[in-house]
Computed example of a mutant assay.
Amino acid sequence: MIGIADSGSTKTEWCLLGETGKLECRCFTPGMNPYFQTEKEMAEMIQQSLYPQIADYPIEAFYFYGAGCAYPEKNACVERAIQSYWPVPVEVNSDLMAAAHSLCGTEAGIACILGTGSNSCLYDGKKVKEQISPLGFILGDEGSGAVLGRKLIGDCLKRQLPASLCQEFIETYQLTPASILEHVYKKPFPNRYLAGFVPFLKEHLDVEPVYQLVYHSFEEFICRNVMQYTDYNQYPIHFVGSVAFYFQSVLREVLQQYELRPGKIEKAPMNGLVMYYNKVRR
């Protein structure tokens, strides 16, 4: 039996697969991110939240994918935290590799993440062949929830959207210029704060300026990321993440405009990861 984990900073989903590929257990714990948590803190979370749920299962290996797991020294912290309770092999990969394995499987393709942040890579069926750096929501992260929220606030405060819509937005979230600046420039996790406004965009997507805001943000993602890969138009373009999933009609229109081949669009990677490991373990 193997364990598969897909982790963000706030939540981790764990699945246990038996020898025949049967899903034996699915559970959730708080997130594990080695950029924000020490090895000790992650081990304590495992002890309190995960171990009681799966202690009785005969797990032979773990495959962990997570935000913040892009460097060997950080990955080693996650590995040791898990091995403090299960002395078995632990393989730690980034959330981008989770997207590649989930969306592309063993086939070549371009795997993209559009959630709170954005990311992408050209995957050759075994490894990441090329990656354009996402650069975060200040310098990059085109098409992400954080950038969509940033654009929405900017357009409202600079009177680029209809006055009635701006008023509704301000009243819905009880915003003031001072509170916005406080959250964006002084409080932690401004990207999450900005991404929290994405539901307003979804609710008002039929308003033309809102549609154009979303459309052009996705267009920037495609032009500045996807189209920078070698032979980008020869591969299916896959997406995972809540922003991609809930705005997929707009995303498909952008792909069509640039004559790109749409692939899978999924809300989360776990179902695809289960399929991937059932295939590679045969």
Rank of each mutant, 00 (worst) to 15 (best):
M270F: 04
I132S: 03
E171Y: 05
V243L: 02
Y235Q: 04
L251V: 09
S179T: 14
L273Q: 08
M42I: 02
D206T: 12
S179H: 04
E79S: 15
E24K: 08
Y71R: 12
V147F: 07
N93P: 00
C77Y: 00
F189W: 08
E208K: 09
I265A: 05
Q47Y: 09
S217W: 07
V88C: 01
H101K: 11
S144L: 06
E91G: 05
F239L: 13
S9V: 01
E220T: 13
M45Y: 00
I110G: 05
V88M: 03
F239H: 06
P262C: 10
A5W: 01
R26A: 11
L161I: 13
V250L: 09
L273R: 01
F189V: 01
E39V: 12
P269I: 07
A76R: 06
Q160I: 12
C166Y: 07
M97W: 00
S102Q: 04
H183C: 03
I180R: 05
G21E: 07
G145E: 11
R159C: 09
P134C: 14
I222Y: 00
V90F: 13
P89V: 12
G272H: 01
S94L: 11
E182Q: 14
G263D: 07
V226G: 06
K187W: 05
L205F: 02
L273H: 01
M45L: 15
K267V: 10
I54N: 02
L23A: 10
T172W: 03
D206H: 12
R150K: 15
F221N: 08
M275K: 11
G105W: 02
L251T: 06
P89Y: 11
I138N: 01
L181R: 04
K74G: 00
I153E: 00
W14E: 14
Q256T: 14
S249N: 08
A244R: 01
Y85Q: 15
A61E: 14
E44S: 13
Y235P: 02
A98W: 00
D206K: 04
S120A: 15
G115I: 12
I113Q: 03
K202D: 02
C156K: 04
A108S: 14
T230Y: 11
S133Q: 08
N233A: 15
N33K: 01
F247Y: 07
F137D: 05
S164R: 04
Y229H: 09
K187T: 10
I82Q: 06
T116Q: 11
L273K: 02
I265P: 03
F218Q: 05
L23H: 09
R159T: 06
F197R: 09
G31Y: 01
Q212L: 13
L273P: 08
L16H: 00
E208I: 11
P177Q: 09
A98T: 09
E107V: 06
L194T: 07
G8H: 03
P134N: 12
D206C: 04
A146V: 02
A81D: 06
S94C: 06
W14F: 12
C223L: 14
Q83Y: 05
F28M: 09
Q160C: 11
T20A: 13
G18M: 11
P87D: 12
C121S: 08
V226Y: 04
P58A: 15
F239P: 02
H183R: 07
F62K: 06
G109H: 03
C27H: 07
